[in-house]
Simulated assay, not measured.
Amino acid sequence: MKITVFGIGYVGLVSGACLAEVGNDILCMDVDSAKISLLEDGGIPIFEPGLKEMVGRNVSAGRLQFTTDVERAVNHGDVQFIAVGTPPDEDGSADLRHVLDVARNIGRLMNSSKIIVNKSTVPVGTAGKIREVISSELMNRGIDFKYSIVSNPEFLKEGAAVDDFMRPDRIIIGADDEQAIGVIRALYEPFQRNHNRIIVMDSKSAELTKYAANAMLATRISFMNELSFLAEAIGADIEMVRQGIGSDPRIGYSFLYSGCGYGGSCFRLFVRLSG
């Protein structure tokens, strides 16, 4: 399958490499020419175990290419993945400029039917905004190509992203177009050979699922951080408390550590420095 990935940050590069690994023809596009040059020279802009080797293997096999040419990128893929950043805006909300810029370019340059798959972390309702932008661009051109919007949130953990993509615990497909759903099902088939991991829902439910998952994990970390303050105040051992509650299968051990905080809708960890 011919696929374009817009954005070669953490999600885009991992997704592009893993999709190429199972035989797809991937073109990754980014406006950062320095990143593209680094990748074409055999380097990678992020560290993720196993990623450099996977990128190199698929570049050598001709299944993975990189470009800064937007028109080439839009014309390449029948499926267009949006995997660009959504940093916090001044009011704390997700900045959708980059997502909508990609949608605008797709509508401005597409010359055939496309399936647009959003993997960026976005607020509920963004799929509708993407649809409106593409529709507006096509109307301005006076043409009417068929296109579908699919919400396909990512659930990658830093340090285990390649394994998470290759062996996912769930694949969320948010769409109402049965043909598009069928194409994305086929695309992910190599990643679910043991049992069906695909959950199909509407786009708003898919977008909310991503935020709900992040919120639940954030709640666990926040709860443990509050408990650690209490443990310190009364002289208890927070690690023993963690083991004591994590042994309950209803609670479990994952994301049950006190320590670093986090920030942003993409749930990135950070350390607050004093001074």
Score class of each variant (00 low, 15 high):
residue 25 D to H: 05
residue 104 R to T: 11
residue 95 D to V: 08
residue 84 V to A: 04
residue 24 N to G: 07
residue 91 D to Y: 15
residue 44 I to D: 06
residue 90 E to K: 15
residue 37 S to G: 10
residue 47 F to V: 01
residue 95 D to S: 10
residue 28 C to D: 05
residue 19 L to W: 05
residue 31 V to D: 06
residue 31 V to Q: 07
residue 48 E to C: 05
residue 85 G to I: 06
residue 66 F to T: 03
residue 61 A to L: 09
residue 23 G to Y: 01
residue 71 E to F: 06
residue 89 D to Y: 13
residue 34 A to E: 15
residue 45 P to D: 06
residue 70 V to W: 10
residue 72 R to G: 09
residue 94 A to W: 07
residue 87 P to F: 03
residue 85 G to C: 07
residue 53 E to I: 02
residue 87 P to M: 03
residue 24 N to D: 11
residue 96 L to S: 12
residue 19 L to H: 04
residue 41 D to F: 07
residue 78 D to I: 06
residue 56 G to V: 05
residue 43 G to P: 08
residue 99 V to C: 09
residue 19 L to Q: 03
residue 64 L to S: 08
residue 34 A to V: 11
residue 64 L to M: 10
residue 75 N to D: 06
residue 31 V to I: 15
residue 44 I to K: 05
residue 45 P to E: 04
residue 71 E to D: 13
residue 98 H to E: 05
residue 28 C to Y: 05
residue 63 R to N: 07
residue 91 D to P: 11
residue 108 R to Q: 12
residue 28 C to S: 10
residue 30 D to K: 00
residue 108 R to V: 09
residue 42 G to Q: 09
residue 62 G to S: 13
residue 83 A to N: 07
residue 102 V to F: 02
residue 75 N to C: 05
residue 27 L to V: 04
residue 67 T to S: 13
residue 47 F to Q: 03
residue 40 E to T: 12
residue 90 E to C: 12
residue 91 D to I: 14
residue 101 D to Q: 14
residue 63 R to G: 05
residue 59 V to G: 11
residue 19 L to N: 03
residue 104 R to H: 12
residue 74 V to H: 04
residue 79 V to N: 00
residue 29 M to N: 15
residue 75 N to W: 03
residue 50 G to D: 00
residue 22 V to Y: 08
residue 24 N to M: 12
residue 73 A to S: 04
residue 100 L to H: 10
residue 72 R to M: 12
residue 50 G to E: 01
residue 44 I to F: 03
residue 34 A to M: 14
residue 64 L to V: 08
residue 103 A to D: 12
residue 50 G to L: 02
residue 43 G to I: 13
residue 33 S to P: 06
residue 30 D to N: 02
residue 86 T to P: 00
residue 32 D to R: 05
residue 42 G to Y: 08
residue 81 F to G: 06
residue 48 E to S: 02
residue 100 L to C: 08
residue 74 V to D: 04
residue 25 D to N: 07
residue 32 D to F: 01
residue 77 G to Y: 01
residue 39 L to G: 13
residue 45 P to M: 04
residue 106 I to E: 07
residue 103 A to V: 13
residue 63 R to C: 05
residue 26 I to Q: 07
residue 59 V to L: 10
residue 37 S to Q: 11
residue 86 T to H: 00
residue 94 A to Q: 08
residue 20 A to M: 08
residue 57 R to G: 02
residue 91 D to F: 13
residue 60 S to I: 12
residue 61 A to F: 06
residue 74 V to N: 03
residue 103 A to F: 12
residue 20 A to G: 11
residue 103 A to S: 14
residue 106 I to H: 08
residue 89 D to A: 15
residue 40 E to K: 15
residue 21 E to Q: 14
residue 36 I to Q: 02
residue 29 M to V: 15
residue 92 G to A: 03
residue 74 V to I: 03
residue 44 I to P: 02
residue 50 G to Y: 00
residue 28 C to T: 06
residue 51 L to P: 00
residue 62 G to W: 10
residue 76 H to D: 00
residue 66 F to V: 01
residue 20 A to S: 14
residue 83 A to Q: 06
residue 78 D to A: 11
residue 64 L to K: 09
residue 31 V to K: 09
residue 47 F to K: 00
residue 47 F to R: 01
residue 71 E to L: 09
residue 88 P to Y: 07
residue 105 N to Q: 10
residue 95 D to M: 10
residue 62 G to R: 12
residue 53 E to H: 01
residue 103 A to M: 11
residue 23 G to R: 02
residue 64 L to H: 07
residue 89 D to H: 15
residue 56 G to L: 09
residue 106 I to G: 09
residue 57 R to A: 07
residue 35 K to H: 02
residue 66 F to Y: 04
residue 21 E to V: 12
